[in-house]
Amino acid sequence: MQEKTDSKQEIGQKKTDVLLQVEGLKTYFYMEQDKVAKAVDDVSFTLKKGETLALVGESGSGKSITSLSLMRLIPSPPGKIIEGSIKLDGTDLLSLSEKDMRKVRGNDIGMIFQEPMTSLNPVYTIGNQIAETLMKHKKLKKKEAYKRAVELLKLVGFARAEQIVHEYPHQLSGGMRQRAMIAMALSCDPKLLIADEPTTALDVTIQTQILDLMVEMKEKFESSILLITHDLGVVAEVADRVLVMYGGQIVEEATAYELYTNPQHPYTVGLLNSIPNLESDVERLESIKGTVPPAHRFPKGCRFAPRCKHVMDKCYEANPDLLEKDSNHKVRCYLYEE
């Protein structure tokens, strides 16, 4: 751990290095009656080393499927990654054999899930579940793996880590379980930590603790975070850069600061307006009318058009491209095309 704290400078340098490069990713689900759900439809983005990238969107926007695609854990059938490339540190994950991919999961990419209550196996101890990953990837002996598990639990803030390793998930609270999940995801020192709605199921007071812990751990482990959430409040707290997803596509991409101060896409504006603000005195919160269309029935043209306030005729004709507005801002909307 010590060597990592004095390598802060190195992290600054690494920021320019690309860790994850996703290009043209398409994950489709083949359903009954020949319906095809385009859950992820031509998604491209990069994640730099040391960066926290947030993937934001409503339920059904394709953000979780994107993260599961990165792990190649799409339930198949019916799901299938049909196109694109996912490069982690130069290795194309989609071309790996299943066996090699298993060496990536849990080792190069750690993952935290939404429901800490159900994401841990109820019949094994916390220690067993952390040690298992270490024994698998780091080839540690059982005893060493448990020792390391205790260290990891201490690191994520368990004062009585020696007891916790012998406890079962049901003996811990939701926040504690999520801490244990973080310890587990970080156990093999992954390059990338994917957190799929890590705080959604937690109390608001615990949410901040967990987010702070994730960021702290990211620094300590020199890792990067891909944070999937529907909560823009969470994003503001931790993210460097934000991708807004709608209908299986990225509709806006910007640095967190830029996105909050200068949102462009009507969907992003709608999302930001639906966050309660304590300073302004509004009677009713704004909401975006309607729901995300099901992924097998996207409208022709812009997928957001039926819900958009600024909809124009041409929005119904063809889907706009994701265009670069300036160097750190991209948007998919005809309002900003000349």
């Binding site: 159900t118 994401s119 841990l120």
Partner: peptide, 19 residues
């Protein structure tokens, strides 16, 4: 969910199933 977690840890099909 915990089976998804086990897979995300990179465990083999054998230990996902039998453990």
């Amino acid at each position: 969910d915990f089976i998804r977690t086990a897979k995300a840890k990179g465990l083999s099909n054998h230990s996902v199933l039998y453990k």
